[in-house]
Structure formats: C-alpha cells, structure tokens
C-alpha cells in the first residue's frame, strides 16, 4: 500500500486535503492503461475516449501486465487488482480504462470503477467497429465542456448488464454533480444505444443470458447545433463528431453488495433542503413566509369521561360525583 505521508508544508497539506472525501464529489479521474498487447484499434479508441474525458484523464504510456478479470496472473508477482488499487491511490483516480487485445478476446476494453481505493465493479467490452474522431471532418467540442448523455433502449432500464454499463458510462463522462450549467456551453452529446432487442432477451429468463445473445452497443458523439425555433426552447440539430464505437459486452464483475451499499450512501439532507421539499415527502409540513418550518398535528378527540381526576377517599363512592363537578367551577370563579 501507499505510505501515508504527513504534510510538511502548507502546499502539500492543501494537495492532500484536496484528496480527502468530499460531500459533493468532483469528477472521477480516469486512467487509461495499455495491457500487454493493444492493437491500433484499441489505441485509437483509448485516445479518442481520452479526448472526450480530457481534463480528468491520465494516460499511462507504457504497457502493463494487467488482467483485471484473472485472480492472479502468473507472469507478474502481484495481482492485477493490487496494481489497480495502487495506481488509484497514487493518482487519486477512481476509474480505469484498460485496453487489451488477445487472440481469444480481440480489441478488448475494460472499464473499472473504484470505491474507496478498492475495485467496485468492472465491465469488459469488445470493439467491433471504430471510426476515429480524426477521420470525421467536422467541428469538435471544446475539452472540458460537460457532455450531454443519451441512452436509447429499454434494456438500459431492465437488463442488469446494460444497467451496469449505463451506470459505468455515466460515471465515466457525467458523474459530477453540478449546481448550474451555462446553457451556451452545451456543445456535444454522447449517445449510447443498442441494436434491437433479440426475442430471447424479451421472453426467456436470465438463463439465456450469454454474451452472444446480448445486442450490440453503439456509442456515437455528436456536436449540437441550436437553431432558433421562435420559442424559448431552441430546435437542436446534431452533427457527427466522432468517435463512433460499436461494442459487444463481454465479461463483467458485479459490485460486492456490501461495498455497493456503502458507495450508494447519500449525505444527510440539510434543513434548508428539506424545507425546499427534497427527500422523503412529509405530510403536514410547510414553510411559512418567514422561512419557519411549521407542522400540523392531528390529535384524536379526547374522551373526557375516562379522564383521571384527583383521587380522594371521599370521592370514591360515586354518589358524590355530581357534587364534585359542580364544586370546581365555583372555586375557579373565586380565585379569578
């Protein structure tokens, strides 16, 4: 593991503090790693994905013996998972894109997502078809601008593999919570869609869940062109920007349920947020004009007959009940 260093000056302290966990997190930093052998296609795909991810991307230029899906690789001393964890801690990165091309699995790309310095989940995809950004002659988006994301297919809501892929890609490109966005700065969209759902997926149970039956995934990137429509909302036209990547899903590793539970924890809602109506819907709560939170309490009708009054020996008989009831008001009048 990494040595824990005590900051010796203010600058290194600031740098370490920036790595501390935050309530609202920054964009995830992605590391692009080449495996033992990457072909031209994988190299170019990684280059283009990096161009899309740009300010939060780190590229490892050397090849690495890394097989994230194999428990321990015989060629290297430490396991691949350990190396991933080490790189993650060293670079403060929580995403990996690992390119690897083998005879068995040509043009493979593995996305790894980390939580707290540990591997959370992994998705391996194979690149079937690829057109680079450079091959498409059109205007490109500015690095650092937030992309819009578009997912099209019901599988992204229903099928666990595609839900994972969607979550992974959203973490990759768009996982940063921002308060506001400059509307003029919206330049490009990353669109992810599927081939038509095969019949086997619609009808059969999960037993037919083999990689071959899963439909292909198409990733496209477009620049947006906003045209005036006469209303406040502009009409949008898309221009292909590249890259165009066609993928097949291969191996994957689901997140450990306990770790996922930890990773999904949300910060406690602040009082002001609750007043705005966020979180669980609460009945009979309202915020008045002064900004005070007011609640209305409904109490059932009280049964006065069963009300316990003062116990006295003389009152026990029951015959004098009427008298005591009469006595009280007179007393009250006296005092007031």
């Amino acid at each position: 593991m990494l040595r824990v260093v005590k900051p010796r000056n203010a600058r290194s302290k600031r740098a370490l503090d920036a790595r501390e966990p935050k309530e609202i997190e920054d964009a995830r930093i992605a590391i692009f790693v080449k495996g033992t052998h990457t072909g031209e296609v994988v190299n170019n795909v990684m280059k283009d994905l990096m161009a899309l991810k740009r300010p939060d991307a780190i590229s490892f230029s050397k090849k690495n013996v890394i097989h994230p899906f194999d428990e321990s690789s015989p060629t290297s001393g430490s396991s691949s998972i350990q190396s991933l964890e080490f790189w993650s801690a060293k670079n403060d990165a929580s995403l990996f894109a690992i390119g690897q091309s083998t005879k068995k699995r040509p043009n493979g790309l593995t996305f790894v997502r980390m939580y707290d310095g540990k591997v959370l989940d992994m998705v391996e995809v194979g690149i079937e078809n690829f057109v680079s950004m450079n091959d498409i002659k059109s205007a490109k988006s500015t690095p650092g601008h937030k992309p819009l994301m578009h997912f099209a297919s019901e599988l992204f809501d229903t099928h666990p593999r595609f839900i994972q892929l969607k979550s992974m890609l959203m973490s990759f490109f768009n996982g940063e919570e921002v308060e506001s966005i400059c509307l003029a700065g919206i330049e490009h969209v990353i669109s992810v869609s599927c081939a038509p759902t095969p019949v086997t997926l619609n009808t059969a149970s999960t037993s037919a869940d083999t990689a071959t039956s899963l439909p292909k995934v198409y990733i496209r990137a477009y620049t947006t062109k906003l045209l005036s429509s006469g209303t406040r909302i502009p009409r949008v036209e898309l221009v292909n920007m590249g890259p165009s990547i066609d993928l097949v899903l291969r191996r994957h590793r689901d997140p450990d349920s306990e770790m996922l539970k930890q990773a999904m924890r949300r910060p406690k809602l602040k009082k002001t947020d609750v007043e705005k109506g966020l979180g669980k819907k609460r009945k009979n709560f309202e915020v008045d004009e002064m900004g005070d939170l007011r609640g209305r309490v409904h109490v059932g009708k009280q049964d006065l007959d069963k009300l316990q009054t003062r116990k006295m020996k003389g009152l026990k008989g029951g015959a004098f009940d009427g008298e005591t009831e009469e006595e009280r008001p007179t007393k009250r009048i006296k005092t007031s």
Partner: peptide, 25 residues
C-alpha cells in the same frame, strides 16, 4: 441566473444514483 458568460441554468439534484468514489466525509 445571469452571469458574464450567459445564463446559468440552475440544475435540480440528479435522480440517478451513481456510486460514490470515496466514502462520505
């Protein structure tokens, strides 16, 4: 909200739940 670069749209909190990269502070 107006700004020097153009209007800033105030985004609502996201509805999709994505796993965090680090534990809560």
């Amino acid at each position: 909200l107006p700004s020097s670069d153009g209007p800033l749209a105030q985004l609502p909190p996201p509805t999709t739940q994505l796993p965090r990269s680090k534990p809560l502070p």
